[in-house]
Amino acid sequence: MRINALVIRILRQIIRDKRTMALLIFAPILVLSMLYLVFNGDDYIPKIGFVDIPEQIQDQLNLDDAEITQYDSIHQAKKALSNHELDAYFLFENQKPSVVLEGSDPSINGSVMKWMQTALKPLQQNAPQKEIAVDYLYGSSEMRQFDYIGPILLGFFIFFFVFLIAGVSFLRERTTGTLERLLSSPLRKWEIVMGYVIGFGIFTMIQATIIAWYSIYVLDMMMEGAFGYVLLITLLVSLTALTLGILLSSFANNELQMIQFIPLVIVPQVFFSGLFNLETVSSWLSWIGPITPLYYASEALRGVMIKGYGWDMIYKDLLILFGFSLLFMILNIAALRKYRKL
């Protein structure tokens, strides 16, 4: 009987908390749907450039399942490759067929190589002695999947933990009444927000340094660019996570409700941050990526770590991340108006 009473009480509590109930049902549906859409996306069609390939050779090739663009010079093709317009280009060097891959995404490398094998089959039958030379613009054939997803995971974990910890600690401030106590002191609202930003900023800088250092020097994550840029990016990531966490904590009444934001706010960002190839994601979902902070963080981190990008290539992503933080800070100050009107 006591167990019965307990069961009834728990069920009642769950029914009272409509949000938790909705989360229990809709969050798994949401996450599963996203996984479905991400993994069952269209097959990737590689974009291949042909540099000055004689027409009689092209006629022999099997050109299905690829987007072919013709180039007159290597220079143009190279430019297209580094601008992401191409995944690889194909040319004859000293009568030998050779291919240059963009190389930063191992899964795209795979599809290009697979396509090459079918496409070039007729050619190799005629002249089997000709082997294809393979070259990479970034990375190499030894680049592991980990090197590709590493920068994203680095950004993600920093974002995730800072979000959660900052959110929960601000939530505690609210539920224990200390926030109200702060607001009954001469402390200004923006001072509270800045205090949190700086306090956690210092802490997260240490955290980011340790994680980045560990990933690069212990896990041997690929690192082409400057370590300082990685730190700068991760600092901005944690700033965004911090301000977003504090902001969302004002919509949670307890720690559990804070956790409920994970599948709604954090998980979708992972899907659209480039961990999976965004070009195969259904087009009606592709708008999600550019509105999430992690999308820009991943782009910048990957640029620095795999491609060795410098300031002029990443400053736009950094500005957008900073913009997100600024927006969340302003919203935070506005949200505190609920407690004190000045």
Binding site: T176, G177, T178, E180, R181, S184, P186
Partner: peptide, 13 residues
């Protein structure tokens, strides 16, 4: 607010 001392009902510590 600066001239006022406040002790809330819940211990804000």
């Amino acid at each position: 607010i600066e001239k006022t001392g406040y002790m809330a009902q819940s211990d804000a510590l």
